[in-house]
Design a protein around this nucleic acid. Structure first.
Lengths: 147, 147
DNA sequence: CTATATGCAAAACCTTTGCACGATA
DNA sequence: TATCGTGCAAAGGTTTTGCATATAG
């Protein structure tokens, strides 16, 4: 699992190295995101924070997420209903998303061979790999049987 | 290349099989989309249609695209500035995008092993494969050397 | 003739932004 | 104390929707 205090510390250094200010809001948002096991969107995050008694605004969330992405902790994975969904990428094996176009369900799979394959190409091209995501679109078993 | 009249005919059957009505607007939109070699968004499409003297409204485009997606001709590939970008998936080999986060360059690669791997999983899950795309983020060789 | 589609304009929605106030370094 | 961040509310821009009219079957 992710070592939360280590990440928090790294984030603080990241923020400072950019000449920005480390604020309680930014830390709250980071900590809450690190708790997310699944994909999340801004609204969900906002509600979770509210429930904990936090006073952060959505504006701050919208302004903090790009920093977390830049720091390499978070990644936007897809959009649905005009809403962006994110996930924590720390210590997470890159994975394949199987997205059903009918029921919109997203299933996640991890695969070693894919990792190998991509690394091979990256090496070949002299490409410094940061992250990636593979999205597969189709119709899931359930939906197909219902038709 | 895509056989346009064949696709148009298939789409007509698709529409009818759903008990919907086949209209000139729907066909105009389909034909225009089949002309798109690159990714496109609703606005671009609308402007192209206008230039040809078409009278279709954006509303109709927005209402037609989901049908084209359902029919399997079109796919949403990404969003940028809160705008959805689509592409025609007919006769297009699935591909890997290597995206350089520095210079924003996108390089496209086709790979057989990836196809095999995904088909394997899809079969396993009873997932009807329509399309997919793999995006790899990092820093390209040129940019790395410049730093 | 009936059910569905269209176009228009307004609404809905997520995200961004301006501004005054507050907090960090 | 200067700079940057925050919250609020309003703006911005894409997509959706209600409604009257038009059209397909």
């Amino acid at each position: 699992m992710v070592n939360v205090s280590e990440v928090v510390e790294n984030f603080r250094e990241f923020i400072k190295s950019k000449g920005l200010k480390y604020t309680p809001e930014r830390e709250e948002i980071l900590r809450e995101i690190l708790e997310c096991k699944e994909h999340f969107d801004v609204d969900e995050l906002y509600i979770k924070l509210k429930k904990r008694g936090s006073k952060v605004s959505k504006a701050s969330i919208y302004r903090t997420i790009p920093l977390l992405i830049e720091a390499g902790y978070v990644q936007e994975v897809y959009k649905q209903n005009n809403r962006a969904y994110y996930e924590v990428v720390l210590n997470k094996m890159p994975h394949i998303h199987f997205i059903c176009l009918n029921c919109k369900n997203v299933e996640e799979i991890e695969d070693e061979r894919l990792v190998t394959l991509i690394k091979e190409y990256a090496d070949q091209k002299g490409f410094t790999l940061l992250s990636y995501h593979l999205e597969v679109f189709g119709v899931c078993n359930n939906c197909r049987n219902e038709e």
